[in-house]
């Protein structure tokens, strides 16, 4: 193989890696049919979380890119959101970009996960919990 060919393969791999990273956790995601996940921010929190939670429980995941426990918790929450298929909506809030909402709810450690029902926070947990405990927490609160 020539250097040039090698370089092209390397570029291709690199582009694939980038694409994979970009596709991770962007925008809205639907399960089989129901809405299971949204990204929320300071601007739309009222509507996407508070208002929506009057119809359907919303579980807000307060996270940031520099928080590795958050990165570990995220796939577990996403898996459960898909599996519960619409019994709750998972809302991701990046605390780094949305400090207002984070401080309004007194977030001091991340990940913090808060369940909203009827426009109000009803229960929360802090840190990474094993999947069965998150299930229990969901079942208790839904």
């Amino acid at each position: 193989m020539t250097d040039w060919e090698l370089e092209r393969i390397r570029m291709k791999k690199y582009m694939e890696m980038l694409r994979k990273m970009e596709n991770k956790g962007k925008g809205e995601e639907r399960g089989v049919r129901k809405l299971v996940k949204v990204e929320v921010n300071d601007g739309n929190f009222e509507e996407e979380v508070i208002e929506r939670s009057k119809d359907i429980p919303v579980v807000v995941d307060f996270w940031a890119e520099w928080c590795m426990p958050c990165l570990a918790l995220a796939p577990v929450l996403e898996k459960l959101a898909k599996e519960y298929n619409g019994r709750f909506v998972l809302a991701k809030l990046n605390v780094d970009r949305n400090p207002q909402t984070a401080s309004r709810y007194g977030i001091m450690s991340i990940p913090t996960v808060i369940m909203f029902k009827n426009g109000k926070p009803v229960d929360s947990f802090v840190g990474v919990m094993p999947e069965p405990m998150i299930r229990e927490w969901l079942d208790r609160n839904l």
């Binding site: 940031a64 520099w66 928080c67 958050c70 984070a102 977030i107 450690s109 991340i110 840190g127």
Partner: peptide
């Protein structure tokens, strides 16, 4: 007070302080 002032991960929570 875990999550309300007590932390085990400085890099995760430093910006809140």
């Amino acid at each position: 007070f875990v999550g309300r002032g007590v932390s085990y991960c400085a890099i995760c929570d430093a910006p809140f302080y």
